[in-house]
């Protein structure tokens, strides 16, 4: 569905995307994860024909994004980081216009708009002017617009930003259902680690315009961080009987691919406490870059954990 080679975008003084090679097969759900300014949106904007690559190439839905823009546009849906719906318009009108833009006739566009209004729970607000909607309602309307022509490939740029937990869960469910029912290929960007973790079977970590890791969330965590088993003993002598790991007084920390199993094995040494810490994607990011993905945490997360 997507195949990029050395995809690069240079803005005046910033290399926003720096040689990305990415292949996405039909039916995959891929999450692009990275901090602010990593180049996620710029990558999506190139893949969706909005901006031409400075160098390198990309084929999307079978067509080159720079030379066959129209063919690409006909086959993809895009929900950008901003507000797709015009603020002076009514939600339902925008949905119908959007359907018409993809060549649906008015009755078909109307019917499709009704379906989406229903399935995204927009019934009460669809006839209101968009500027009067709450951020989350607007976001759902944007998503409905991106789905109007049931595209085979859907790009979502931070779809759940601004949604409350319930609506975020609804949206995730909607995306997963879309994929289950129609086999839609989905590429989304997110800041929410739990979202990437729970939805995507493939996470592409981007930093400074480069792909620094690309794997399943489980593999990423196992490969780059691993589980940590923390054993507490009642004396230093007891702690010293643990063959490996780092000892700090009566506490021993061991890294392992399979924390629970190791913990079970070491239980025979008679620790007074056992803790298994599973890594998060943030730990992966921290290991790979030395920085945390979370904007709200100034200090590296593990330091806080161990304090």
């Amino acid at each position: 569905m997507i195949e990029t080679r050395e995809l690069t975008k240079q803005f005046k003084d910033v290399r926003a995307v720096d040689g990305i090679d990415l292949t996405v097969a039909r039916g995959e759900l891929v999450a692009l994860l990275g901090p602010n300014g990593a180049g996620k949106s710029t990558t999506l904007r190139m893949l969706t024909t909005l901006i031409p690559p400075t160098s390198g190439s990309a084929r999307v839905a079978g067509f080159d994004v720079a030379r066959k823009q129209r063919e690409v546009r006909l086959r993809i849906g895009y929900i950008g980081q901003g507000n797709g719906a015009g603020h002076s318009q009514r939600g339902r009108d925008e949905l119908i216009s959007q359907g018409r833009a993809y060549g649906l006739r008015v009755p078909a566009a109307r019917k499709r708009a009704d379906e989406l209004i229903d399935s995204l729970g927009l019934g009460e607000v669809a006839n209101r002017t968009v500027s009067t909607l709450s951020g989350g309602q607007r976001r759902r309307l944007d998503i409905a617009m991106g789905l109007i022509h049931a595209p085979e490939l859907l790009f979502l740029d931070e779809p759940s930003t601004g949604l409350d937990p319930q609506n975020r869960a609804n949206l995730q469910e909607h995306i997963l259902r879309l994929r289950a029912e129609h086999g839609t290929t989905i590429v989304l960007t997110t800041h929410y680690l739990d979202e990437a973790d729970s939805m995507a079977e493939r996470v592409v970590v981007i930093d400074h315009g480069r792909i620094i890791a690309d794997d399943t969330p489980q593999q990423l965590k196992a490969k780059h961080v691993g589980d940590r088993v923390i054993l507490g003993f009642d004396s230093e002598q007891a702690a010293a009987r643990v063959p490996d790991g780092t000892r700090d007084g009566t506490v021993v920390r061991i890294t392992s691919d399979d924390g629970p199993r190791l913990a079970a094995r070491l239980a025979s040494l008679g620790p007074v406490s056992i803790e298994v810490v599973r890594p998060t994607l943030d730990d992966v990011f921290l290991t790979l870059t030395g920085r945390s993905l979370r904007e709200d945490v100034a200090a590296p997360a593990p330091a806080l954990l161990e304090a």
Partner: peptide, 20 residues
């Protein structure tokens, strides 16, 4: 100014991605 506003909010971008 209407278009300018739509450029800023993102709805112009959404129109640009359609086959229009």
């Amino acid at each position: 100014s209407n278009l300018l506003f739509e450029i800023q909010t993102g709805s112009h971008e959404r129109m640009l991605v359609t086959p229009l």
